[in-house]
Simulated assay, not measured.
Amino acid sequence: MTKEPVVAILGATGAVGQEFIRLIEERKFPYSKLKLLASYRSAGKKMTVNGEEYTVEEAKPESFDGVDIGLFAGGSISKELGPEAAKRGCIVIDNSSTFRMDPNVPLVVPEVNPEDIAWHKGIIANPNCSTIIMLMALKPIHDLSPIKRIIVSTYQAVSGAGKEGIDELRDETEAYLKGEEMQPKILPSKSLPKHYPIAFNLIPQIDKFVEKDYTKEEMKMVNETHKMLHDDSIAITATTVRVPVFRSHAESVYVETADELTVDAVRKAIDAFPGAQVQDNPAEMEYPMPLFTSEKYDCYVGRIRKDLYNPKAINLWVSGDQIRKGAALNALQIAEYMLAHDMIH
């Protein structure tokens, strides 16, 4: 495409939509025209992008007429408007879980499997935030020697549950410190019959329980990793936990490979991998922490060490901003990749 694309942001007023806007400004993403779309409740709101004021429009199928790239912030509206936008010639990059496991839709992290973009049929899916952050640390290891087994425990920030999750942690913390009763309404999930406080607590459930007493979030990490690494034989066990942190997820990962790898080789591979940085110096107490990985583009990896019992296994710790790399940044990078490789017509 020689001309700059017409871009629409669906869900522009939410946390991920606002992050799209910030990143478009920061990364000087090119566009000839920009449309900000949301539900009828947010229509009419004013938002500023690159110094220009926009009025948020209600998202309808015809909103995508003449649009080249649709950045979808996520939510149930993707199911209805994704195919409608694609039908109108718009390339949809969708942040919801709607299309991730659809065999006709590529699931992409540009640093991990950019080759899958080429077979899209109008919709490209953004993976789950916890899967993205894990694979940014594991793909360089997989390139050294095929991964055979992964055991991962996640420490997921409340912003993964949207603005309401952030508000809930703040309100409960204030209530607790004043000696008042906490009033949980959102977590583990708004759709579940029971809610627990997150302030000064950990909740070992994200989304609902599905087969074999794993949660939907845990199975996303399993299925999405298989799809993106094109290998269903990798044995993956995930335990996903919501923690009282505002922003940026962290994960503890055990990874077993076909060959024995040295810590030095793993460190070098991760550090050379675009979008990943090694922050690992036990002598100086240096390791990634959510407070310091928030607002950053890269995923940070530390505590890299050989397993004590399995010579073919490495243990590591990774932290990354799930609203940036785990959501908006990854989607925007897909669009940037497509522009750079002249894949938008």
Score class of each variant (00 low, 15 high):
T225W: 03
T225C: 09
H226K: 10
H226V: 08
H226C: 11
M228Y: 07
H230F: 05
D231H: 01
D231C: 11
D231T: 05
D232W: 03
I234M: 03
I234V: 09
A238I: 03
A238H: 07
A238E: 06
A238D: 04
T239L: 12
T240Q: 11
V241P: 09
R242N: 14
R242F: 13
V243H: 11
V245E: 13
V245F: 00
F246P: 01
F246A: 14
F246Q: 14
F246G: 12
S248N: 10
S248V: 06
H249D: 15
H249M: 14
A250C: 14
E251P: 05
E251T: 02
E251K: 04
S252Y: 13
S252V: 11
V255E: 07
E256T: 13
T257V: 07
T257Y: 01
T257G: 06
A258Q: 13
D259H: 06
E260W: 00
E260C: 10
E260L: 02
L261A: 04
L261I: 06
T262D: 02
V263C: 07
V263H: 05
V263R: 06
A265R: 06
A265F: 01
A265W: 02
R267S: 13
A269G: 00
A269W: 01
A269K: 00
A269Q: 02
A269T: 00
I270E: 09
I270P: 02
I270L: 04
D271L: 00
D271W: 00
A272K: 08
A272M: 05
A272P: 05
F273A: 02
P274V: 04
G275P: 10
G275C: 10
A276Y: 04
A276R: 02
A276S: 15
A276H: 03
Q277T: 12
V278P: 06
V278F: 01
Q279W: 14
N281T: 11
P282Y: 04
P282D: 06
P282G: 05
A283M: 12
E286T: 12
E286K: 14
Y287T: 14
M289I: 15
M289R: 13
P290R: 03
P290M: 09
P290K: 04
L291G: 15
F292D: 09
F292C: 03
F292Q: 09
T293Q: 08
T293G: 12
E295K: 13
E295Q: 13
E295F: 13
K296N: 11
Y297M: 13
D298E: 15
Y300C: 10
Y300V: 08
V301D: 03
V301A: 04
V301K: 00
G302N: 07
G302M: 04
R303P: 09
R303I: 11
I304T: 08
I304D: 03
R305E: 14
K306A: 15
K306I: 09
D307R: 08
L308D: 15
L308E: 15
L308C: 08
Y309P: 00
Y309G: 11
Y309V: 12
N310D: 15
N310Y: 08
N310L: 10
P311I: 02
P311C: 05
P311D: 02
I314A: 01
